[in-house]
Simulated scan of single mutants.
Amino acid sequence: MDSAPLQSPQPKLFPSIIERLAALEYSQRTEESYIQWIKRFITFHGKRHPREMGSEEIEAYLNHLATDKKVSASTQSQAKSALLFLYKEVLQHALPAMENLIKVKADKRLPVVLTKHEVQAVLSRLDGSMWLMVSLLYGSGLRVMECLRLRIADIDFDRLELLVRDTNGYKNRITLLPASLVEPLKAHLQEVALLHEEDLAKGFGEASLPAGLAKKYPEDGKTFTWQYVFPSSKLSVDQRSGAVYRHHADEKTVQRAVKKVAKQADINKEVTPNTLRHSFATHLLQGGQDVQTVQALLGHADVSTTMIYTQVVNTGGRGVASPLDVI
């Protein structure tokens, strides 16, 4: 059993976790998620200190998530990553293999995809910045958080490209910018520029910089180039530094808006922002685009992930026309 206490006194647990996450330049979103999983793990085991526990307790908790909570594979994986981070990076405790871990199998259901008519029905019921955001989800194949994290610097109007930054800056990719969105996007950025000027006049106007840049160019956070394309309507205080930032818009507002207009359009499918991304991939394949290009635009590490959209394209008799329809 791997539950012997670790030696030597250590600083308080959660400040140490936050300090280590910051040192490794994890995003604030990841920080919040990891802390919540660690708290749930500790509570599950009667509020025992992690130093008194080890791989058996981690395994028991992850199995609880799988069998009792019926979580998804991605949720269990996230919980596991948080706990492994705790023991490896914070407690500096090597864990033996978890041989009795019950792994949740990934859901192999086909993604929900809209027809082009349904996409138009969704977009026609939106306006302003929300219309622009959802248009980018479909027109550029962005995940909702990728869209919200776009910076002014990430837009190349001349090349019709968007730079999609990985949270930690390691797997950036280039995707397309629809030509039809160039003028609406430029008009939107004029409004963002006015908001930024107002913030600067009040002594604010700073956006948190991507990982690594804050140390190199600490003053760049106040430049227009590094502002978010879709800024929040409110200023916020960074929990780590205490600095006042203009963060990006809230993903929940996009989720609610997409769900609302899909219902208004009488679309009898479970529509989320990611449904627009799925539709982007499927419609490109239906139009004859090769899988490797779609893979690159979506940022999939493995082409097998992209191949699931070929199954969507081939549904309905595997893409074969019924003889009844051609007589």
Rank of each mutant, 00 (worst) to 15 (best):
S232M: 00
G212W: 12
L95W: 04
F230G: 01
E25K: 11
L276C: 06
L213F: 08
K216I: 10
M130C: 10
L65D: 00
K39P: 07
K202A: 14
A321W: 01
L160N: 13
P5R: 06
E59M: 07
K70P: 00
L123N: 14
R29E: 15
K88N: 12
R48Q: 14
E89T: 01
L24K: 15
Q92S: 13
V320N: 10
I38R: 07
L142V: 02
S135N: 11
A257I: 07
R159A: 10
L160M: 12
T67I: 01
K222G: 06
A321C: 05
A321S: 13
A249N: 10
Q286N: 12
T282Y: 14
L284Y: 06
E57Y: 00
V312R: 05
V271F: 09
V90A: 03
K105A: 15
P111S: 07
Y228R: 03
T305C: 11
L142G: 07
P218Y: 12
A249P: 10
M307C: 02
L185F: 01
F85I: 08
P9K: 14
R51T: 05
V164R: 03
R48P: 00
P184M: 08
L324M: 06
G287I: 08
A265K: 04
D290Q: 08
I308K: 11
K216C: 00
L13I: 04
A106G: 14
G203C: 09
R20H: 08
D68K: 10
A296P: 00
H300K: 13
S241F: 01
V192S: 05
A321K: 13
D127S: 15
P111V: 04
M1N: 12
A153K: 08
A296M: 15
R40Y: 02
E19L: 04
E251N: 05
I174R: 06
Q36W: 12
V71N: 05
G128R: 02
G141N: 04
R159N: 07
Y34N: 02
D156F: 08
V71K: 01
L324N: 02
Q264V: 07
T310M: 09
E52G: 07
M53P: 01
T305N: 11
V112N: 08
L297P: 09
A97L: 09
R125D: 12
G205W: 01
E161F: 02
R109N: 14
Q92G: 04
K116N: 13
R159F: 05
R29W: 06
I155F: 05
S33N: 03
S77C: 09
L21W: 13
V237M: 11
P96H: 01
Y228M: 00
G203A: 05
S180Q: 11
R51L: 11
L91F: 01
Q311D: 14
L235I: 09
D127A: 09
V244C: 12
E198V: 03
H64V: 00
S233Y: 12
K234L: 13
M98W: 06
H188R: 07
